[in-house]
């Protein structure tokens, strides 16, 4: 197959228009990067805000948002290509299967079967008892 026809076909294979110039490429990618950096810094800052158990939830939520941005804009999931969406979505569903059932077990396991060396369930720091080294 000749190069010319392949170039034509490569253009056709994209749902989103492929940027052809340096300017267009940068204009499309830089804002995404700025948002990503902003999210990363926000996540770092928010981690110092005492929110109890919500700290980790917020951090992971921001991580998921970053994943979504990278997936949509850098990994071209915006392309209306069913194959890519299939592959890109399947793993999420399957990780969901794994997580849902593992946590279902852990959340409902008999109290006796929880580990013996169990610390406080709450996210509060351990009370500083005399003689214990702090962290």
């Amino acid at each position: 197959m000749s190069g010319r026809s392949s170039r034509r076909s490569s253009k056709r294979s994209l749902g989103e228009a492929t940027p052809r110039s340096a300017g267009a490429i940068l204009a499309r990618s830089l804002p995404v990067w700025l948002v990503l950096v902003g999210l990363a810094l926000a996540s770092c800052a928010l981690a110092y805000l005492p929110m109890g158990r919500w700290n980790m939830a917020v951090s992971l939520g921001i991580a998921a948002a970053k994943m979504l941005l990278i997936g949509l804009f850098f990994m071209h999931l915006r392309r209306p290509d069913p194959l890519l969406r299939l592959a890109g979505g399947a793993w999420l569903l399957w990780v969901g299967f794994l997580a849902a059932l593992v946590f279902a077990d852990q959340a409902t396991r008999a109290p006796l079967t929880q580990p013996e060396h169990m610390e406080d369930r709450t996210m509060e720091p351990p009370e500083t008892a005399g003689g214990r080294s702090g962290f």
Partner: peptide, 18 residues
């Protein structure tokens, strides 16, 4: 088939609900 693995663990100490 991915959602049935726990039947290998009925006596393992996993929760009754699961």
């Amino acid at each position: 088939g991915f959602l049935v693995w726990g039947h290998h663990m009925f006596v393992s100490g996993q929760s009754l609900f699961t």
